[in-house]
Design a binder for these strands. Structure first.
Length: 625
RNA sequence: GGGGGUGUAGCUCAAUUGGUUAGAUCGCUGCACUGUCACGGCAGAGGUUGCGGGUUCGAGCCCCGUCACUCCCGCCA
C-alpha cells in the first residue's frame, strides 16, 4: 500500500502508538486533520479519520476528513487514480473511518474555504484504505444545528456518535484541561492527592446511599461514599496537612439537570488554617482555572455576603447578583397599614418585602398565576402585585394604600411606567424565599423577552458566609446540622450552643457563581468534647449510636487532631459553567438519565440467580415483564 | 412520591383544532454531474402517529391507562 514511499516527516507524530489495523500498519498518519497549511504544499502526507462529508461532482470527488483536531479536504481525481480506488471512494458513507495518502497542495485560486483552519490547502489522494465501513447513522453528527436538537434519548443511546460532535469533544477537552490545571495548582500549593476508598460504610446522615452487598458476611454491606468527608478529616489526623482529590461521589437521590447519581468533586482539606486561608486558596485555584480554560482574568478577592444579607437582598442563599431586582423591606411602612394581610404579618413578627420586576407590567394572567403558585408552594395565601400601566397603579390592593405608603414604594423601588411590583408578607425566611423564587422566574421571563441581557462572559463570584450552624426540624421536633455535624461553630457563638442554638453561626462557607452553588465547606470541630456535645446534646444521637457511627473519628481526634478545614467543589458544575451549558450531562462522557439509567449499556440490569445466592440476597419485588 | 412538557418517516418538524390517500427539509436509494465545501439538478423508496384500551359514522388530534425522555417541587447532612 505504501508504494508512493511516504516519508516519515520530522514533524511530531500526533499519536505515536501504531494503528491496530494490520493492513494499514505500514502507513501511520503523519499529520492530524487540523495541521496542514500552504507552507506544506508539495509534501507527501498520510491522514486518518472519519468521513465528515462527501461531495461527488461526478468527475471529481471531495471528502472532508475529520479527526479530533479538525478537518481537511481531500480530493479524489479519477484521472489520477486507479478505477477501483475512485470507485471505493464514491461508495463511502459519512463516518466511515479511512486513511489516505497523497500530496498537499494549495487550493486553486478562488476555492479557499475560510470556515476551516485548513481551508487554503487540500490533499490530492493517491491511496485510500477503508479501515471501517460505517452504516447509515441513527442521527447526523456533521450538522451542528440539527445534531444539537436531537432527542437526548438517542444521543445517550449512541453516545459515541454524540461525542464525535465538535461541541461535545470541546467539552471533554476542556474538562481534561481543567482537571490538569487543578492538579498542577494544588501540587504547587503543597497538596498531596490521596485516593480514598469507594467501598465505604453506610452513614445514615444525609443523602440516600448506594449499598454494595458482600458475599463474606450475609447482611453486611458496604456503601458508596456521598463524599470522602470522614476520610479527609482522618487524613488530617494522619498529618497529611494538605490533601486534595478529584473524588468520585455517589448519591442515590432523584436527579436534576445539575445532579447525577455519580459525580466528581474537587475535594480539599487543610490543617492549621482559618477561613481566610481557604478563601485565598480557592480564589487562586479558580483564577488559575478561568485563565487556563477561558483565558479570562477574574477579579480577586471575591465579594462576601452573609447568609442573612443574601436572603434579605436576593431571597436565596446562592444569589445570582447579575440580575438586579433586589428585595426591598417595607416592614416599617406597612406596620400600621389598613391592608390587614401586611399589617397582620408584621404583628405576627413577620416582614413585608417587595421587588420591582422592571418592565413586566405586561405580564400575562398565566405568568401571574405561575408566580402565585410559587408563592403558595411556600405557604403564602396569595401574591399581591401592582402593575404600573398608563400612569396608573393597577392592583386589587392599591385601594388600601395611603399617600405616604405610595410615596415610599415609589421611592424605594424606583417605580416607573411599565413596572410590576410583587409583594410577600410572612415570617422573615419565608417572605425572602418567596420573593427569591419569583425574582428568578421574572428574570427568566425578561431574558426570554430580551429585556434583560446578561453577558455570557460575566462571572459574579461570591462567598456566602455565616450560615446558621443548626436548623430545626418541626416534624421531627429536633435540631439538625445545616451543613454537616463536623462543622465548627463560630468561636464567640459556642456559648450559645445550649442556650440558643438558632443563633449559633457555623464556620461554613459556600462559593457561588452566577447563582450556582459551586461548592461549600467549613472549618471542622477538632476537639472531641465539642464534637461529642454536638452529637449527643444538640443532635440528640445516643452515645451508643454515636460510637457505632462515628466512633473511629472521635477516637482519631483523641490522639492529636490538628485544627483543620476544607471545601468540596462540584467539578461537573464547574465544567458546565465554563462550557456555558446548564446540564452537567453535557460535560460527562457517559451520563445517566433522570431515572438513573445508562441508555447505552442498559444498566442497571438484573443479575443471575447464582450471583444473588452468592451475595445472600433474595429479591422479593415482582419481576417486570 | 407529586406537578408540567414532549413522543408522527433514520433525524428535525408540519398536519387549517375530529374528516379524503399523514406532508416538508436533511439523510437514504438510483440517474446525471470535473472545483465543491450545508455542492447544485432529476427521480424514487421510506409510517403499527411510543404502547394498550375507550368514545365516535370517522381519532395523529378527544378520554382513560401505561412506557420512555425532559424540566421542576419534595429529596440532595
Amino acid at each position: 500500500m505504501n508504494s508512493t514511499g511516504v516519508a516519515t516527516t520530522s514533524r511530531p507524530v500526533f499519536f505515536a502508538a501504531p494503528l491496530v489495523d494490520c493492513a494499514a500498519s505500514s502507513m501511520k498518519r503523519t499529520q492530524h486533520c487540523n495541521e496542514l497549511r500552504p507552507a506544506d504544499a508539495g509534501k507527501p502526507v498520510t491522514l486518518a479519520g472519519w468521513v465528515h462529508s462527501r461531495r461527488d461532482l461526478g468527475g471529481v470527488l471531495f471528502i472532508d476528513l475529520r479527526d479530533r483536531e479538525g478537518r481537511t479536504q481531500t480530493v479524489f481525481d479519477p484521472a489520477d487514480l486507479p478505477a477501483e480506488v475512485f470507485e471505493a471512494a464514491t461508495r463511502l458513507h459519512a463516518e466511515s473511518v479511512i486513511q489516505v495518502s497523497g500530496v498537499v497542495r494549495a487550493r486553486p485560486a478562488g476555492t479557499d474555504n475560510s470556515k476551516i483552519a485548513t481551508g487554503q490547502v487540500e490533499v490530492l489522494v493517491k491511496e485510500l484504505a477503508v479501515l471501517n465501513h460505517a452504516e447509515v447513522l441513527p442521527f447526523p453528527v456533521d450538522d451542528p444545528e440539527v445534531a444539537a436538537k436531537v432527542n437526548e434519548e438517542l444521543r445517550l443511546q449512541y453516545r459515541y456518535l454524540d461525542l464525535r460532535r465538535p461541541e461535545m469533544t470541546r467539552n471533554l477537552r476542556l474538562r481534561s484541561k481543567v482537571a490538569t490545571a487543578t492538579r498542577v495548582f494544588m501540587e504547587e500549593q503543597g497538596f498531596l492527592e490521596v485516593e480514598t476508598p469507594t467501598l465505604f460504610k453506610s452513614t445514615p446522615e444525609g443523602a440516600r446511599e448506594f449499598l454494595v452487598p458482600n458475599r463474606r458476611e450475609p447482611g453486611a454491606f458496604y456503601a458508596l461514599p456521598q463524599s470522602p468527608q470522614q476520610f479527609k478529616q482522618i487524613l488530617m489526623c494522619a498529618g497529611i496537612e494538605r490533601y486534595f482529590q478529584l473524588a468520585r461521589c455517589y448519591r442515590d437521590e432523584d436527579l436534576r439537570a445539575d445532579r447525577q447519581p455519580e459525580f466528581t468533586q474537587v475535594d480539599i482539606e487543610m490543617s492549621f488554617i482559618d477561613r481566610e486561608d481557604l478563601y485565598a486558596l480557592i480564589e487562586g485555584l479558580l483564577r488559575r482555572v478561568w485563565k487556563r480554560a477561558l483565558g479570562v482574568d477574574i477579579t480577586l478577592p471575591f465579594r462576601r455576603i452573609t447568609f442573612e444579607e443574601a436572603l434579605n437582598r436576593y431571597g436565596i442563599d446562592k444569589p445570582d447578583t447579575r440580575l438586579g431586582m433586589e428585595l426591598v423591606d417595607f416592614t416599617e411602612e406597612f406596620k400600621a397599614s389598613t391592608f390587614k394581610v401586611f399589617s397582620g404579618a408584621v404583628a405576627a413578627g413577620g416582614v413585608v418585602k417587595a421587588i420591582n420586576a422592571k418592565g413586566m407590567a405586561g405580564a400575562t394572567q398565566g405568568q401571574i398565576e405561575t408566580m402565585t403558585a410559587h408563592a403558595k408552594s411556600l405557604g403564602a395565601k396569595g401574591l399581591a402585585f401592582i402593575k404600573v400601566e398608563q400612569g396608573e397603579w393597577k392592583s386589587p390592593i392599591v385601594k388600601f394604600f395611603g399617600e405616604s405608603e405610595k410615596a415610599s414604594l415609589t421611592q424605594k423601588l424606583a417605580i416607573e411606567e411599565g413596572d410590576l411590583i410583587l409583594f410577600a408578607a410572612d415570617q422573615w425566611l419565608n417572605a425572602c424565599e418567596i420573593l427569591g423564587k419569583i425574582r428568578l422566574y421574572c428574570a427568566d421571563v425578561l431574558k426570554a423577552q430580551g429585556r434583560l441581557v446578561v453577558p455570557a462572559d460575566r462571572f459574579d463570584f461570591l462567598w456566602v458566609v455565616d450560615f446558621p450552624l443548626l436548623s430545626f426540624d418541626k416534624e421531627m421536633d429536633r435540631w439538625y446540622s445545616s451543613h454537616h455535624p463536623f462543622t465548627a461553630p463560630v468561636a464567640e457563638d459556642i456559648a450559645l450552643l445550649k442556650a440558643d442554638p438558632k443563633k449559633v453561626r457555623g464556620q461554613h462557607y459556600d462559593i457561588v457563581v452566577n447563582g450556582v452553588e459551586l461548592g461549600g465547606g467549613s472549618i471542622r470541630i477538632h476537639q472531641p468534647d465539642v464534637q461529642k456535645t454536638i452529637f449527643e446534646e444538640i443532635l440528640a444521637i445516643s452515645p451508643e449510636e454515636t460510637k457505632l457511627r462515628f466512633g473511629y473519628m472521635l477516637e482519631a481526634f483523641k490522639y492529636g487532631a490538628p485544627p483543620h478545614g476544607g471545601i468540596a467543589l462540584g467539578f461537573d458544575r464547574l465544567i458546565a459553567i465554563l462550557c456555558g451549558t446548564s446540564s452537567i450531562r453535557d460535560v460527562i462522557a457517559f451520563p445517566k438519565t433522570a431515572k438513573g439509567v445508562c441508555l447505552m449499556t442498559d444498566s442497571p440490569a438484573p443479575v443471575s440467580a447464582r450471583q444473588l445466592r452468592d451475595l445472600h440476597i433474595e429479591v422479593k419485588a415482582a419481576k417486570k415483564e
